[in-house]
């Protein structure tokens, strides 16, 4: 059977791939239009059928070159939350790798790294030494380890690159990054990986025109919906008003969408909290909200969330403020509601 060879790598990749996936999903609530929205819908289906599965996770793991895309995605997501998580992970990972090689230089390097991450944050005065250390460290990694660890290191490197790139966005006047980047492959005579080059073009692009970067990033952050249970059968969605305000949508519209999607009813109480009939978890509400944003908030042409919703002749239009496009969006329909619970006596 041809299935077997395809299945085997999947089983291998499973543990490797899953954590990152989960991380992606768990990453608080970040409302990104495409990657997450698509994934959320696609994933369960692909998990069901083993034949479709290798197509998705396979390449991203097997070829480090393509990891860039994946990383980029993660990074995109991370960008919205100031990638706190990523930093933490990196710090945890690197010392572990170092311990494998040698203990004596590990301490120094780890220190240097810490220094470096601090540097990145604060944009302080001695970046030269830090970059040097990083390079050396990378070389060490490359020399001493092979296979998966080497792969890992590369992934890490990419992550680093991305991080730096981001900091460029944060402080566009920092001159360090360009040289720093070249160093990553200047030190060794290996070939450039695709992701590095990709990172480079993006960095230069953003360095050349800083206004581009400020428009593309940030923004998408929305506080996670705080959902808790009231009694046994109702859920309270406490910060609807806040979220609606952030999305710049009338809360009635959002609430209507929520009810239509969840197939329930509810009401708004005195403190502007939404009381939803039925038990719902934060994750579920989050999913629905994400879909709402994809459908009614983000501009389909330029992906910007900077849009306005207005109504004309009973038809809703979303007009984008950054690119000026305007499109009609479908009205919210509840659809068929099955009879649940007691039937009215006739």
């Amino acid at each position: 059977m041809s299935d077997d060879p395809t299945l085997a790598p999947v089983a291998d990749d499973g543990p490797l791939f899953d954590p990152s996936l989960k991380k992606k999903k768990r990453k608080k609530v970040l409302f990104n239009e495409d990657p997450l929205g698509g994934e959320g819908l696609d994933e369960p289906s692909s998990a069901k059928e083993p034949v479709a599965a290798p197509a998705e996770p396979g390449p991203s793991i097997l070829k480090p070159a393509e990891e860039g895309g994946d990383d980029k995605e993660v990074d995109d997501l991370a960008a919205m939350f100031g990638d706190l998580k990523k930093k933490k992970k990196k710090k945890k990972d690197l010392p572990a790798d170092l311990d494998e090689e040698a203990s004596a230089p590990a301490g120094g390097d780890a220190d240097a790294l810490d220094d470096f991450s601090d540097l990145k944050k604060k944009k302080s005065k001695k970046p030269k030494k830090a970059t040097f250390d990083l390079e050396e460290f990378e070389k060490q990694l490359g020399d001493s380890t092979t296979g998966t660890v080497g792969d890992d290191a590369e992934g890490e490197g990419v992550g680093d690159d991305e991080d730096l790139g981001e900091n460029v966005f944060a402080l566009p006047d920092a001159p360090v990054q360009g040289g720093d980047e070249k160093d990553a492959w200047l030190g060794s005579d290996r070939d450039y990986t695709y992701s590095e080059l990709l990172g480079r073009i993006f960095r230069t692009l953003h360095a050349q025109n800083p206004d581009l970067s400020s428009a593309s990033r940030k923004r998408y952050t929305i506080v996670p919906p705080s959902v808790h249970r009231e009694g046994n059968k109702k859920s309270i969605f406490a910060n609807v008003a806040d979220i609606c305000k952030r999305m710049r949508r009338p809360s009635e519209h959002v609430i209507q969408f929520l009810f239509a999607e969840l197939g329930t009813t509810g009401s708004v109480d005195g403190e502007k909290r939404l009381v939803i009939k039925g038990r719902f978890q934060q994750k579920q509400i989050e999913n629905v909200l994400r879909r709402y944003i994809v459908e009614y908030v983000t501009c389909k042409t330029c992906k910007s969330p900077d849009t306005l919703l207005d109504k004309e002749n009973r038809i809703y239009f979303v007009s984008c403020e950054s690119c000026g496009s305007r499109r009609s969006v479908s009205a919210i329909k509840t659809g068929f509601q099955a009879q649940v619970g007691k039937r009215p006596r006739k």
């Binding site: 479908s330 659809g335 068929f336």
Partner: peptide, 23 residues
Amino acid sequence: SQQNYIHIRIQQRNGRKTLTTLQ
């Protein structure tokens, strides 16, 4: 396109029971 969609919905019943409708 609006009419041509196949809608798959879920509804909560009592407890953790649910109901799926295909329309």
